[in-house]
């Protein structure tokens, strides 16, 4: 009897601790969403604490009229789609030969590619290289230098290695070329790893700000993250010299832009959730 009471007490403690953690984790997210939908006067008075006070879509309407936001958002969509497709394709193509046990350069190339996780030339030589290749201020400058991540390459190779080699051997005997084996047998069996790669690269491109910061000085090419950096972290300068209305809207618009910038990822989140756990665990095996 005594024991049962004790166990329940532990359960209460565990639950309380967990609820506290959830509050700390989710509060900032809820706060930002509430601020973006509240009446602008409450936003300026800073008396929104959890749920929206009043209701207004003004900030979102302003975003729809703001050409810079729309252009940055469009740029981010372009970088994410083009970058993810090329990255996933190239990673799978590079991982496939590395997973074939008879490929004669397998060990040497695997070693050289893995090594890049630990040693690199550093920021300045990369910057100079991008300029030398005339990539500076082009859309490809933020995709090409990061197109394959060595970590993703390794987890993809491990995944391919886990597929039974007999299927490939059988296809080989039937006269199938390596290209046919890869595209017709391995890739169709690789949905889990392709989803993981798409997720990792996609989130990476969507959220990246540093590469655009150093490689894109042209405003027209800048992604939403750089725009956000401008309004969130250097906004004091911008609001100086604006009218009252402009200040009011500027204050609320930043919450709305955050919501818009995070929205696609949050929407996809429930669908991709099961894949990313898998991704981390495939990576952990090696």
């Amino acid at each position: 009897m005594n024991r049962k009471v004790k166990l329940q007490r532990t359960d209460i403690l565990v639950t309380m601790l967990t609820v506290l953690i959830i509050i700390i984790t989710l509060y900032p997210v809820i706060y930002v969403i509430s601020m973006s939908f509240s009446d602008p006067n409450h936003v300026l008075a800073k008396d929104v604490y959890l749920l929206p006070k009043g209701f207004s879509l003004k900030a979102y309407k302003m975003i729809l009229k703001n050409k810079t936001v729309l252009r940055s958002f469009g740029n981010t969509v372009w970088y994410t789609i083009v970058g993810t497709i090329t990255s996933v394709t190239l990673t799978a193509f590079t991982a496939y030969p590395l997973s074939r046990s008879r490929f004669f350069l397998r060990r040497q190339l695997s070693f050289l590619m893995t090594l890049t996780m630990f040693v690199s030339g550093g920021l300045i030589p990369l910057y100079i290289l991008v300029q030398k290749l005339h990539l500076y201020n082009t859309r490809w400058s933020i995709i090409l230098p990061y197109i394959i991540s060595a970590y993703n390459l390794i987890i993809t190779r491990s995944f391919f290695e886990s597929l039974p080699e007999e299927i490939a051997d059988a296809a080989k005997i039937d006269g199938g070329s390596e290209w046919t084996i890869m595209t017709k047998i391995f890739i169709p069996l690789s949905k889990p790893i392709i989803s993981v790669l798409t997720l990792f690269y996609g989130v990476g491109y969507w959220n990246s700000y540093f590469a655009p910061l150093i490689f894109l000085s042209n405003d027209k090419l800048q992604p939403i993250q750089l725009y956000l950096r401008g309004i969130l972290l250097t906004s004091e300068m911008q609001s100086a010299g604006m009218g009252m209305d402009a200040v009011l809207m500027n204050e609320q618009m930043k919450y709305a832009v955050i919501v818009v910038a995070c929205f696609p990822i949050m929407i996809l989140y429930p669908f991709i959730q099961k894949y990313f756990e898998k991704g981390v665990l495939i990576g952990a095996v090696k």
């Binding site: 890049t116 300045i124 030589p125």
Partner: peptide, 12 residues
């Protein structure tokens, strides 16, 4: 890719 963007900067 690895030769140009990973080993290239090492020369730098």
């Amino acid at each position: 890719y690895f030769a140009v963007f990973c080993y290239g900067p090492m020369y730098g």
